[in-house]
């Protein structure tokens, strides 16, 4: 899976906008002031490596793996190969000059693997429900995936509804599907996106939005913990071991890729 993995971190400094302002429950427009403060004080790397877990679900053959591969490995493989169980990728970001890892758990859409998904939902910070813009049924079924996620998750997570294969969707068909999807997104309290893994349309933008929202949240929480004073030590202890154990991050930083920022 990681044969042609890009080694450059993606760097983000501006908070990415949603696909459609009218199709998102998340009204955040910028990184929280306290997060910016914390990040700018991080010259010494004192915050440590932050990370978030993101799980990708949806019907069989809607293009979950293609979406993840397009973003993480910058490839599009036309041949369909069913995912067994769950594929795993870690994408490195540098947000407000702070290193951030997004774990992406790409699940199998096959019915027989449905029973195992619960184990993988645990602790997810972001849930991405994927459907096929050319297949109404997969959109309708998104509601079932949503119910499943809600049932298994103990903590709140950011929710995204992503329509794929935008490139092979005719315009009229697309308009119709988009309208339906926006409606469903509102109902589920999810943010809607339409993307194409083949042409790379919106893929980069979408994941940067996901990462930024997750990062904003994680940093805010870790700061709240700090001001609370209670859990401070926990966070620092866990993170400090992380940063000391990852000496290779520094070496590869020479050439940073810029995305979603100008």
């Amino acid at each position: 899976m990681s044969s042609s993995k890009g080694v450059n971190d993606r760097s983000i400094s501006l908070f990415p906008e949603p696909y459609r302002p009218d199709a998102t429950p998340y009204k955040v427009k910028d990184f929280h002031a306290s997060v910016r403060n914390l990040a700018s004080s991080n010259k010494t790397g004192s915050i440590g490596l932050q990370m978030s877990k993101c799980i990708v679900v949806g019907d069989v053959a809607v293009g979950k793996t293609c979406l993840v591969n397009r973003f993480c490995n910058e490839v599009f493989d036309k041949d369909y190969k069913a995912t067994i169980g769950v594929d795993f990728e870690v994408e490195r970001f540098e947000i407000l000059n702070t290193p951030f890892n997004l774990q992406i758990w790409d699940t199998a859409g096959q019915e027989r693997f449905k029973c195992i998904a619960a184990a993988y939902y645990r602790g997810a910070h972001v849930v991405i429900i994927v459907f096929d813009l050319t297949d109404k049924f997969t959109l309708e079924h998104a509601e079932v995936w949503h119910a499943e996620a809600v049932k298994e998750m103990k903590e709140a997570a950011f929710l995204f509804l992503v329509g794929t294969k935008k490139d092979i969707c005719e315009e009229r068909e697309f308009k119709e599907m988009e309208e339906k999807a926006v409606k469903l997104a509102k109902k589920l309290d999810a943010e809607f996106w339409a993307v194409s893994s083949l042409t790379n349309e919106n893929v980069e933008h979408f994941f940067c939005r996901v990462a930024s929202m997750a990062f904003n949240d994680v940093m805010k929480k870790s700061q709240e913990d700090e001001t609370d004073g209670k859990a401070t030590k926990k966070v620092i202890a866990a993170d400090s071991s992380l940063i000391s154990l990852k000496p290779e991050t520094g070496a590869k930083d020479d050439e940073k890729k810029s995305c979603c920022s100008s």
């Binding site: 769950v86 594929d87 027989r112 195992i116």
Partner: peptide, 16 residues
């Protein structure tokens, strides 16, 4: 709890 698929999925995880 979940059956054989779980072993299959776990092995797939380890294969990564």
């Amino acid at each position: 709890d979940k059956g054989e698929e779980l072993i299959e999925a776990a092995c797939h995880d380890i294969d990564q």
